[in-house]
């Protein structure tokens, strides 16, 4: 179908992504799903309201490890204002945060600490793996770097890049907000699947 055959109004946006959520995630629930508590109109609206509130006030825990942390700081600065999305309150204490942006490469010595901080966050919590090193080990495929933080914590959104520009991080944040609103569940906990416990992080 040639490009001249379509009228301008019918033309599909060529830049729209083919799919929003990767196939390695849990199966996507269809939109407008009936909630598990049986379709009570009042509860549905309340749930929608709660999801809207949660997605628009994500409080990140500061977990900047390396270079991506600087781009995360740029995302919270004035040009790419993360505060537009309600997420400018970077909590130093994980007990007060509900989003963990793992920004940077995770080394072997740091992995138990990451899990410890994740365990200290109260439910509901989400994780964004920011950068190539957090997503899959990135440039470094060696003895010192864990090849992807999803071996340690369950990750909801992966933001590729080395480092991702602040716009990409904000796009990832927007995807997470949509994911929260659509009630797509978090992937299973990798430590439960593999049965590993980290020395020093047992609660």
């Amino acid at each position: 179908m040639g490009i001249d055959d379509q009228k301008t109004s019918e033309r599909v946006n060529p830049w729209a992504p083919v799919q929003y959520v990767s196939n390695t995630q849990t199966p996507r629930l269809p939109r407008n799903i009936e909630p598990a508590d049986g379709g009570n109109i009042l509860l549905t609206s309340v749930n929608k309201l709660i999801d809207w509130g949660r997605s628009n006030s994500l409080w990140p825990a500061t977990f900047g490890l390396a270079c991506c942390a600087i781009e995360m700081m740029s995302a919270s600065a004035s040009r790419w204002d993360i505060s537009r999305f309600g997420a400018e309150v970077f909590r130093a204490s994980p007990r007060q945060a509900d989003l963990m942006i793992v920004a940077g490469r995770l080394s072997v010595k740091m992995a138990p600490v990451l899990r410890h901080i994740y365990d200290q966050m109260p439910d509901p919590k989400w994780v964004i793996a920011m950068g190539a090193c957090a997503s899959c080990g990135g440039v470094f495929n060696n003895y010192a770097i864990i090849q992807g933080v999803d071996k340690v914590v369950p990750v909801d959104v992966y933001v590729p890049g080395c480092p991702p520009t602040p716009e990409m991080l904000l796009h990832g944040l927007n995807l997470l907000q949509e994911k929260i609103r659509q009630r797509i569940p978090t992937p299973p906990d990798p430590l439960k699947v593999t049965g590993v416990t980290y020395i020093g992080s047992e609660d």
Binding site: P112, V193, T194, G195, V196, T197
Partner: peptide, 11 residues
């Protein structure tokens, strides 16, 4: 440092 103390969980 990633050791486990769970006998059933070693994959």
């Amino acid at each position: 440092t990633l050791r486990t103390n769970d006998r059933t969980g070693v994959p």
